[in-house]
Design a protein around this nucleic acid. Sequence first.
DNA 1: ACCTCCCGCCATGCT
DNA 2: AGCATGGCGGGAGGT
Length: 798
Amino acid sequence: MENEKENFFFEPHKRGLMKTPLKESTAANIVLAEIQPDFGPLTTPTKPKDISQGEPWTPTANLKMLISAVSPEIRSRDQKRGLFDNANGLPEAKDCLHEHLSGDEYEKSQPSRKEKSLGLLCHKFLARYPKYPNPAVNNDICLDEVAEELNVERRRIYDIVNVLESLHMVSRLAKNRYTWHGRHNLNKTLGALKSVGEENKYAEQIMMIKKKEYEQEFDFSKSYSIEDHIIKANAGQNGHTDMCFVELPGVEFRAASVNSRKDKSLRVMSQKFVMLFLVSTPQIVSLEIAAKILIGEDHVEDLDKSKFKTKIRRLYDIANVLSSLELIKKVHVTEERGRKPAFKWTGPEISPNPSGCSPVIPFTPSDLEVRRSSKENCAKNLFSTRGKPNFTRHPSLIKLVKTIESDRRKINSAPSSPIKTNKAESSQNSAPFPSKMAQLAAICKMQLEEQSSEPRKKVKVQLARSGHCKPVAPLDTPASAELELTAPSLIQPLGVVPLLPSPLSSAVPVILPQAPSGPPYAIYLQPAQARTMTPPQSLSPTVCPTASSKAMRSKDSADATTEKAAKDAAKPSTCTRPGSLLSVPERHGAKARDKEPAGERGSKRASALEDSGSKKKFKEDLKGLENVSALMVSPTSVAAVPVGSSPALTSSHPVPVQNPSSAIVNFTLQHLGLISPSVQVPASPGPGTVPMSPRIEAVSVAPESAGTQQGRASRYDSPVPGQNQPNGQSVAVTGAQQPVPVTPKGSQLVAESFFRTPGGPTKPMGSSCVDFDGANKTSVGTLFVPQRKLEVSTEDVH
DNA sequence: ACCTCCCGCCATGCT
DNA sequence: AGCATGGCGGGAGGT
């Protein structure tokens, strides 16, 4: 059907035979029951240790891996077999190898830490499944099997799966079982996440944090307030600041247990992390900022060092997986203070309103509150939950759902079988390589595999666009359809929103209609998030829209030299933190230090920072900027803004804020289908979304940067990280984004209903359509912010 | 010395 | 009680 990818139809290793073709809909569940038997007992088992002994990382294994890697077919074949038969084969080999080795040798043979990295593991995991699986086939994933095959603890698999789940690339079927969706839903998911991110005003939050940091650096007095506000605001409302998980209709969590923790971290964190990229203009997010924001939502107060560190650790985990998915890439932002680890989005550009629904309504920045989430509003309208705390995945709802699901599950979940087939093959990947190189090598292998397929992919892409999308279109896009649904609601919000300051209902499940036929997305917003803080307005007021024009080619401009110069210049002004770089993260004066944990460096750096004079200046500058509006580079952002999408987009790009009027217009047009989602009428200059960052940095992107930016969108699938980086990315295949993700599954609907229900009828709010069209265009632009530039260097690849 | 982040203990929650 | 999940952070490999 849809896809063209080679892999497409390849099923994950099919475990057996069996299997039901897909989970498509509800049926799937039922099916599961059937299926499960195959799998065997569920228990989980294995601890890796055992496995480890056998270790795959022997040269031999490695060889196999390489070979298999090279040839997809082989790989697939192996996988299949492996799954089945395999169990015996490889493992044994491993064991044998192991046997020979003793002591040192054995140890040597053991994979180095890097070889065991989550990123590599994730690559292996991903290599097992087609990017665009044929829905008709059974795409079940048995965690135990995978763990065995990959020779890792199950715990690690959970890490990967949780992140994939957050992107709806997999969904849990039952205990120990997941269904592989691949990238079919990816664009939708990203669109939805972007919408939510916008609604949550992450861009603004980022800005604020940066701003705050700067201020703090310079001016201690102010510092806290901003952050505090933000945080409080977020947290505030309901009291519980839980994080909400954004769900897609068809992909809801089916497992009760999962639901219980649904709002918990890794998944949500992953989504939020992604949101940060999607809403920030430069699309470069530093771990520090991400951690702060994530923590902020939870508990700002708790900002203690340990918490911060923990968050950072988790972000690394998530980042590794996202990197494997090629959605982000690690870069370093260089600032005066030093380099900061950050990640750059290399995934598909998501059109402004991708999901449609959320319309990202462009309010002016100042309207933050107002803007609040359109979704929220919609939701409100729909459900009229006002006053109530948000639903976001309110516990009650969750329970409800759980109940329902549990029932289902019971049915389904027979003990899943832990099956132990070992498969080995895949596992072999591991060969002992020297660290980084090893990883790279491993990755390259994988990439090769993928690449081999890539050509097709590209083709696919195009196809996807045309064909895929269209077909799908009905589902996803139908502007018209959406309009109907959405428009009304949206509109109201617009009008209303501004008026309504209070976030009454906070989190509401918002459903986005994806496709006409398709299921809408249900997004559960947190109240807090939804609301976003108001206060900031004053603070940040910012936003000025602007700038879009400025976009230029990013990277180029910035080179190191420039950078420095810029920096110097900047410093005085103080401007900015480059987005990502805030140097000093937390700087809350003394307070911060204590708290700041990981951020430590920042603090240190901060100290280094400029002198007070500059500070003041900086502030002034900031203000000026704000007023001016100049660029809104997202905080994180670096100066360079990719203009990714089309120029036109640029302005809209981040979209964060626009003038209401324009926003409305755009919105309307989009929904009407008069214009593509990605395009917006520029009312205001581009908003970068973020209210200004005081300083701007030009970022020079490292070599890659250029490529990256451009590249990001386009290649959707191609995995090749390292290789591409340089230029490959640039390839960008054009705008094509991924094929449209539409997932054909009807099943979703059913599921959806559950969730929606709580709220009420679910009406779709926005439409999500996502798609893209042009989403990615790759032109790159750079915004300049005044002074500084950031240098982004891409580093390693994973 | 700092950046990453693996590893696995142990809490949580369902069965 | 047992098992599946997954939060969490110590501590170690890498650079």
